[in-house]
Amino acid sequence: MTLFGDPTVWLPLVFAALMGVSILVYVVLDGFDLGVGVLFPFADEAERDRMVASIGPFWDANETWLVLAIGILLVAFPSAHGAILTALYLPVAVMLIGLILRGVAFEFRVKAPHRWKLFWDRAFFGGSLMTSLSQGYMLGIYIMGLEITVFTTAFSAMTAIALTVAYSFIGATWLIMKTESQLQRKAVNWAKGGIWGVVLGLGAVSVASPFVSQRIFEKWFSIPEIFLLAPLPLIALGLVALLWYALRHLPARNDSFAWFPFVITIALFVLGFFGMAYSFYPFVVPDQLTIYEAASAPESLFIILVGTCFVLPMIVGYSILAYTIFRGKARDLTYD
């Protein structure tokens, strides 16, 4: 264990990185399937079936990344886990009920008698919306250092809407990639409408965070950091421009470049995530608890790490297998 120096230094860092990666993967993967749910009311019944078919084989595995992220928080930083989750008690409950509703609606909408289908479709939409909004709200409260005042609540209401728009945007770009004809054209229009929301949301969160937190301000606007970090927002702007251009020309002939908006949107999410991670490091509870203070005993972290080194590549491997098997345009879901 002393091979790489002091384990109480590098182990917390490794686990913070692992947790960051799982949150990022979760936000991208469940982001698109939550987004598809939020877009439900804009589609008719046949389109809704196709939309569900596009995410059916994936949603369960996508959600598992949330379980992993919360699991790492729980096992690697137990005191932070308690502090964060008790402070976010009610929004967590809203999110969990949202996840329950949308998760079971997948199954019930096709298995229950047809007269109930509309009810379960609404549950799917409502659950997806509850989940997205509460996640955005929690993000806001977290940025604000887990304090609940009128001001932080207003800020978090904004992040709630911003994240929901971002999810529906990545959902729309997923649908552009996975569907054809009428529904694909609709998805392009949804994305065109959503892109301004994404720009506004991303911009507002980036501008507001440094001004409400002195520490974040100093991390970004001091020399030489400001020069090193300047490319980040510039690249983001470039990506938005590319997206905007692409959306104006889609769907293209032979369906080429249908994957393009989805991939660019992932890149945007990754950028936003790194900006955020940079702002918070080394804190796990903003301004209160660093990852080093909150970490579990090294011997316990070590035994998890050993397992992770074996298991994570396998998880990635068979996730890729599943996405390969169900590549291409979504078809009707059948069990045989």
Partner: peptide, 9 residues
Amino acid sequence: AVFLGIMLF
């Protein structure tokens, strides 16, 4: 979770 998708669909 991953193999469920393959098993079902």
